[in-house]
Design a protein around this nucleic acid. Structure first.
Length: 277
DNA sequence: GTCCATGTTCTTTA
DNA sequence: CTAAAGAACATGGA
């Protein structure tokens, strides 16, 4: 479910209820969603106060008053929601945090379990090999990162080590907004194309943030509300439908194993695209 | 039954 | 050796 706009919206809707609250109790219904397996999430969080809630890439980072941290990744179908104790516990709810002085509890639910909870302690970092945040990124830096790979620009932008936070929806939407064909080799982009792409990424992400992200199926913010940006998608999940800019039918191909949507008129094929089957 | 899905990581291939 | 391509993970909906 989650790319940068969705994850940021979860953080924004969860923060007022969570930050400043002490953790009264943690129910771990499914211990194997906690990484590493040796971590004791309950022991590390009960009695601590949540002092920070932030997003880094697609990771939701909780900071506690003893400087220990953990992050939640929503994977494909994960949700972090605020629910009343009386609300029925949905299937695949793996962890519940009870807070002091906040009637709602924080529930982590993830049917496919591609997501999870990563315990960092006081010394660990949520960074990993993640690249920079796309909002505020300089075009020259994006250009340096794309120049280093011959992969299709679509595939390169999905790589969290290149830029953090983009996923299948926003890569397709950004490439459309920039007028760049998804099979174009990343290293073959001109400086002008990179600059345009950088602007397009930021414009698309900011618009999506204003609309609370995209809800295709699973995504909800912490209050359980769906996003609205899916109604404004130009190409994503719109194969065969009219491009919102030029009315040409949107095409769908597979790149990097992922559905890829583009407008053949707005995004003309490059002279030497990455070959595809 | 089939195919597909907002993601990441491991394995295989070139 | 490295980079790229493909498979795998687990569940549910169309």
């Amino acid at each position: 479910m989650p790319e940068l706009p969705e994850v940021q919206t979860v953080v924004d809707t969860l923060r007022p209820a969570a930050v400043g609250r002490a953790v009264a109790r943690v129910d771990v219904h499914r211990p194997d969603v906690v990484v590493p397996a040796s971590a004791d999430l309950a022991a590390g969080t009960v009695g601590r106060t949540i002092t920070g809630l932030d997003r880094r890439g697609k990771r939701i980072v909780f900071t506690l008053d003893d400087a220990s941290r953990f992050y939640v990744h929503l994977g494909m179908t994960g949700r972090l929601t605020l629910d009343r104790p009386g609300d029925p516990l949905a299937r695949h709810t793996h962890v519940v945090w009870h807070l002091v002085g906040e009637p709602r509890q924080v529930r982590f639910r993830d049917p496919r379990r591609f997501g999870g909870v990563w315990w960092l302690g006081a010394d660990g970092s949520p960074e990993g090999t993640m690249g920079p945040e796309p909002l505020g990124l300089a075009a020259a830096e994006l250009g340096r990162r794309l120049a280093g790979t011959t992969r299709a620009v679509k595939v390169a932008l999905l790589d969290q080590a290149v830029v953090a936070g983009l996923g299948n929806i926003y890569v397709d939407e950004s490439l459309h907004a920039a007028g760049i064909h998804p099979t174009t080799r990343a290293s073959a982009l001109s400086a002008d194309q990179v600059a345009g792409l950088n602007r397009a990424v930021q414009r698309v992400l900011r618009r999506a943030l204003r609309h609370g992200g995209s809800t295709l199926r699973d995504y909800r913010d912490a209050n359980g509300d769906a996003g609205a940006f899916q109604k404004l998608h130009a190409v994503y999940d719109r194969a065969g439908q009219a491009c919102r800019r030029c009315r040409t039918p949107v095409e769908r191909i597979v790149l990097g194993g992922r559905s890829t949507h583009f407008c053949p008129r707005c995004q003309p094929a490059a002279a030497a695209p990455v070959s595809r089957p």
